[in-house]
Design a protein around this nucleic acid. Sequence first.
DNA 1: GACAAAACAGGACAACCGGTCTGTTTATAA
DNA 2: TTATAAACAGACCGGTTGTCCTGTTTTGTC
Lengths: 201, 201
Amino acid sequence: MARLRSRKRVNDPEGMRNKVLDVAEAAFQARGYHASSLGDLMAAAGVSGGALHHHFPTKKALALAVIDERVAAAVEATWIAPVQAAASARDGVRAVFEAVAAELEQQGFVRGCPLNNLAHELSLADPDFRAALARIFSAWRQAIADKVRADQREGREQGTDPQRFAALAVATYSGAMSMAKTAQDAGVLRDCLPAQGEAWK
Amino acid sequence: MARLRSRKRVNDPEGMRNKVLDVAEAAFQARGYHASSLGDLMAAAGVSGGALHHHFPTKKALALAVIDERVAAAVEATWIAPVQAAASARDGVRAVFEAVAAELEQQGFVRGCPLNNLAHELSLADPDFRAALARIFSAWRQAIADKVRADQREGREQGTDPQRFAALAVATYSGAMSMAKTAQDAGVLRDCLPAQGEAWK
DNA sequence: GACAAAACAGGACAACCGGTCTGTTTATAA
DNA sequence: TTATAAACAGACCGGTTGTCCTGTTTTGTC
């Protein structure tokens, strides 16, 4: 019997499970969950049906893994970590907006926010999906709110409500990405940031 | 040959085409485009396959009709008209937020914004979808921007950029609805409005 | 080396999807 | 009435979907 989880790689040094997650993450982002067939994913990942079914018994299990392991990590990397590292919550939010806008304009194509893309398609489809997605939204908002509270402990942002500020930041970003995706123009992100000197309350 | 388009109803006084659009609008809103099969829609509308194919040759044509005729009308009814009728752009935006929040809290269920739901799923799937959805976003934003300009002609809102204000309003609403849908809690809409007396810039 | 479990291969299958086809009824115009 | 086209009914088909199932290979442990 297996006492401890074995962590040895088999054939692929990178791991076949990770390759499937890579492909699924990209496909769900580009085409959505329902529009991505397991056949497509198998072909794109160079994986047999048996292998895929071994790691992910159902398509739902695969999507849940993508959400928990990849989408959450993406939010952490592009939002939570930069905000925590910034000089202030307000600076951090602005920096992320500008960084994402610059990145999108450089690559000339807007795929949208991974979290929001899946949230719109799957939130009402299944309670498990909704719970997993809601957790990520919650962590995202809380990280920003915590940063505001840290600012307040240092005497700044006395007039701001941490919860409201975080909700507004996440909502503005999510909505701006939605528009940017539909218009295929990242400029909307900049329009949603206040002009220099103006407050963003 | 048909010289002019005949407009007489056949069996159903309400029109079978409208009934299909009703059902399709609701299904696309609740389950999305790909998750709604034509069989489901036929059963829900009590319509035969031949009838559906007569009015809408393809599923894409049906979705395009839903977007152009229903989603656009929904945005017009819940956003454009109220904003135009309001005392000011700022009041109008705030009123819509509060009206939608109240309506959602009353019915205890958040289905999300019809436009954003379809935009996320279909914007990258097909250029025709994307164009139709982008048109609605554009009209939505322009109506708000026009209202700001009307305010400015009366001496108010001198410091505000109409385009930015409109983009921010639409983005905030879209993103707040996204969170509200995933959390199944309309309270986020209120969190995204500024506290009394604070400016929303 | 022996053995058990995990990792993987690949075919099979039933259900379902969207679209097409042919036929029938109804309404309009001459 | 008669001709014509729109409005509708319902069966049908090829292709695809997600899942399951039976083997085979590889890995880790004694």
